[in-house]
């Protein structure tokens, strides 16, 4: 029997790790200064795309491979996983960007004309060519966080807001706040906008490739759309700049002018925790295991990282993939 484990940080990583450990019969305590999932954590601002193949354009191989287990994992937890794939388009003059994207990614096929119109009629009004990543999926990240939290509570997990130093093993999932013990960690700022449009319908995430203003739009249902996200080398949290918001909105407007009439529901910003290679790491420091650096892949990679962490804690695996030697 594995002894009780304290998990510091109840963002997407902490909740997934707790879920995996609880499933193996380990008693878990989640320690987080906030009372529950919310705007204080960067997972709250995520897109919730489970798009390992699209991410492969700029991310390295482990992201593509490990990300493929995410959709099934979330579904197994009872989270509503929408498996309708994702679409990638460009504006007319940037067509070659689509060829490049196609060349450097897998798991897609071109869709044109009638087929595109059948998939996304509103998108087809403005675009006649897209890449369809049929096996990709998306979730509502906020609903997913709240769902995991509720299930853990039901399963008897303890939640505490005060950070009393625990005696037993600790899994540190604090994200950027763990920079005090992980000096290589840095923040990469992301800004997002949430819109409501009565005129626009999308049933799957759409990415717009653009040399300067790349954009993705994730439909949240009920005419609500999440527009994301900038990627700026800055650890600043919580301040979306006018320029970034303007760029996101302009790109959405260029994707389809109907977005011009949408209502702005929310503007958000936070900093993603990342290591220099933008890949996550499992770092053991004495009795503490750090799970961090998930960068823009929190919901995509937390399931795999949680599985590896649980295997490490229960002794199934001594050094899983992504285990990082700490020389500090």
């Amino acid at each position: 029997m594995t002894e009780a484990v304290t998990i510091r940080g109840a963002g997407v990583v902490g909740l997934c790790v707790a879920t995996e450990l609880a499933a193996r019969g380990v008693a878990v305590t989640l320690s987080d200064p906030a009372p529950g999932p919310g705007a204080h954590g960067c997972s709250w601002w995520a897109g919730g795309m489970l798009a390992p193949f699209c991410e492969g354009f700029s991310a390295e191989e482990p992201v593509v491979r490990l990300g493929q287990e995410a959709a099934d994992w979330w579904a197994a937890q009872g989270v509503a996983v929408i498996r309708r794939g994702s679409l990638v388009v460009t504006l007319q003059r940037d067509r070659r960007e689509l060829d490049l994207f196609a060349r450097r990614t897998k798991g897609h096929r071109p869709v044109t004309g009638a087929e595109l119109a059948a998939l996304e009629p509103h998108l087809a009004e403005r675009h006649d060519r897209a890449l369809f990543f049929e096996t990709e999926a998306h979730i509502d990240p906020r609903a997913a966080l709240l769902h995991l939290r509720r299930r853990l509570e039901e399963a008897g997990a303890r939640f505490e807001q005060t950070g009393a130093a625990p005696d037993g093993p600790v899994i540190d999932c604090r994200g950027l706040a763990a920079r005090d013990s992980l000096p290589e960690l840095r923040g990469v700022k992301g800004e997002m906008v949430v819109l409501r449009s009565a005129d626009m319908r999308l049933s799957r995430p759409v990415r717009l490739l653009h040399p300067r203003f790349p954009l993705y739009i994730v439909p949240r249902g009920d005419g609500v759309f999440m527009l994301g996200a900038t990627q700026i080398e800055s650890g600043e949290r919580g301040r979306a700049s006018a320029r970034s918001v303007m760029e996101l909105l302009s790109a959405a407007y260029a994707l389809h002018p109907a977005f011009g009439e949408a209502e702005v529901l929310e503007i958000g910003a936070d900093a993603r925790p990342a290591f220099p290679d933008n890949l996550p790491r499992l770092t053991r420091k004495g009795r503490v295991i750090h799970v961090n650096g998930l960068f823009r892949h929190g919901f995509l990679l937390s399931p795999a990282l949680a599985r590896m962490t649980a295997a490490m804690v229960t002794g199934e695996t001594a050094t899983p993939e992504l285990a990082h030697e700490d020389h500090g």
Partner: peptide, 8 residues
Amino acid sequence: GGERAGQA
């Protein structure tokens, strides 16, 4: 950004 946020 504020507080030299790009320092890292």
